[in-house]
């Protein structure tokens, strides 16, 4: 491989950080979900990079499971957003006024 693994790992860490930052600062539930997806993608990239540099297929198999989890999480998450939204016309977390935390 001509591209060093470190580049990809740094890219993944950066992606993870951007996702985490978005999750912490944005208030729209949907965008927060998307940030979770960004983070999971960073994880996938990390797994694949390690898999490639270790010449070991386990990392790629792991990515497969992460993807399944991401899909399941999104399914349930969006269903909850829909459930919340049906009761109240907003999707920003701050507007969830009944729970003060």
């Amino acid at each position: 491989m001509t591209i060093p693994a470190s580049w990809f790992l740094t890219l993944a860490a950066l992606l993870f950080g951007i996702g985490a930052f978005g999750l912490l600062t944005r208030r729209s539930a949907l965008i927060m979900f998307m940030c979770v997806e960004l983070m999971l993608n960073a994880v996938n990239l990390t797994f694949v990079t390690f898999s490639n540099s270790l010449h070991d297929v386990a990392g790629q198999a792991s990515v497969f499971f992460v993807m399944v989890v991401a899909a399941a999480e999104v399914t349930v998450g969006l269903a909850i957003v829909v459930a919340v939204f049906r009761r109240r016309q907003s999707n920003t977390v701050d507007d969830l006024s009944e729970l003060k935390g």
Binding site: A5, S6, L9, A13, L54, A58
Partner: peptide, 26 residues
């Protein structure tokens, strides 16, 4: 966090695991 991870990775020589423990890629 990100800085820490990158620093850790670079200090750790990026990849330290043993190759082909589970099964090779190809």
């Amino acid at each position: 966090t990100v800085g820490g991870i990158v620093a850790m990775l670079s200090r750790g020589g990026w990849v330290t695991g043993a190759s082909t423990v589970t099964g090779p890629t190809a």
